[in-house]
């Protein structure tokens, strides 16, 4: 059992939890994730690490309540325990093993979308601790959905905010913000690291490709074990099938087949919808003759 030490609401339906997990905290590095199982009946849910303290022995995760499991998790409070907290999983971010001298010469831009801001934080923090000030774009639909702004501002070089409705910062998508920085403000970047919804990462990768900037994305695929045992997390990168949980989660964004990844990510979602639709139509006494998806 792993104890919840602290729980904070970051935005509507977005929570941060600090979990007591000394072993995970001891080994955690930027870019890695954990598998959480709330209780005996629970799913194994992958969640990226949003902060950790190896001395104090805790790890933080940020959760948006979207499905059964995330709702169950967020219904718990400080003092409660969760059944399983396994990690750190996946490979650490590539820059962690890069020579500090060469890393210091690089201009890095992070692009964080929604709850994707959480896993960006330990990366920016790690770079800051190693004397590198990375620029960060945080994007969200609207002002109320922005998270971790103050922590990020304290550690980032320049922090840019983009909201779809313009309620804070730049009005538009993060891709618009990238174009603004590169084309209008003449900024030069050697590396872009984008973490957020699959669709955002797809468009960020398409944007940076225009400029020829190397781009890393962190894929949030479906997972079961998270240890390389099932292949539920497989994605195509550069035409090869790889497992997100052991070969990733970070990959070259210009090589990822996002359309396939998004389709696979939705596998059980469409399944639920299909089932719901069938049930509804049965209840209405209507027999569906055409393909449900078409």
């Amino acid at each position: 059992m792993f104890k919840i030490l602290e729980k904070t609401e970051l935005a509507n339906n977005i929570w941060q939890m600090r979990i007591e997990a000394p072993r995970v905290a001891h080994s955690a590095q930027p870019g890695q994730f954990v598998i959480v199982r709330v209780d005996e009946q629970g799913e194994r849910v992958p969640l990226t690490i949003s902060d950790y303290d190896s001395q104090a022995g805790w790890v933080s995760i940020v959760i948006q309540t979207i499905g059964v499991s995330t709702k169950k998790l967020c219904a718990l409070n400080a003092g409660d325990s969760i059944a399983d907290f396994a990690g750190p999983l996946g490979r650490p971010s590539e820059f962690v093993s890069e020579a500090p001298e060469s890393l210091r010469t690089k201009k890095i831009l992070f692009v964080a979308g929604g709850v994707g801001t959480a896993p960006v934080y330990p990366q920016v923090k790690w770079l800051h601790e190693h004397g590198i000030q990375a620029d960060v774009i945080i994007g969200a639909k609207t002002k109320e959905m922005l998270i971790m702004i103050d922590q990020m501002r304290a550690l980032a070089g320049n922090l840019y905010i983009a909201t779809d409705d313009g309620s804070e910062g730049f009005k538009g998508m993060v891709t618009g913000m990238i174009e603004e920085l590169v084309e209008k403000q003449g900024k030069k970047y050697d590396l872009v690291i984008a973490i957020g919804p699959m669709i955002m990462m797809k468009f960020v990768a398409a944007t940076t490709k225009k400029y020829g900037i190397k781009t890393i994305v962190s894929l949030n695929t479906l997972m079961v074990d998270g240890t390389g045992m099932c292949g539920a997390c497989r994605v195509s990168v550069g035409g090869r099938t790889v497992f997100t949980c052991v070969d990733g989660p970070e990959f070259d964004g210009h090589q990822v087949d996002f359309d396939e990844a998004m389709r696979r990510q939705g596998m059980y979602r469409t399944l639920e919808q299909r089932a719901a639709k069938i049930a509804q139509e049965r209840a209405e006494g209507h027999v569906c003759k055409i393909g449900l998806d078409k």
Binding site: M229, C230, G231, A232, T241, E260, G266, M267
Partner: peptide, 20 residues
């Protein structure tokens, strides 16, 4: 670690390893 065949269509929705 499960093996796959490497044939076209193996990443379609509905293809899983026995382990999964």
């Amino acid at each position: 670690l499960p093996r796959f065949m490497g044939i076209p269509g193996e990443n379609l929705n509905g293809v899983v390893s026995a382990n999964e």
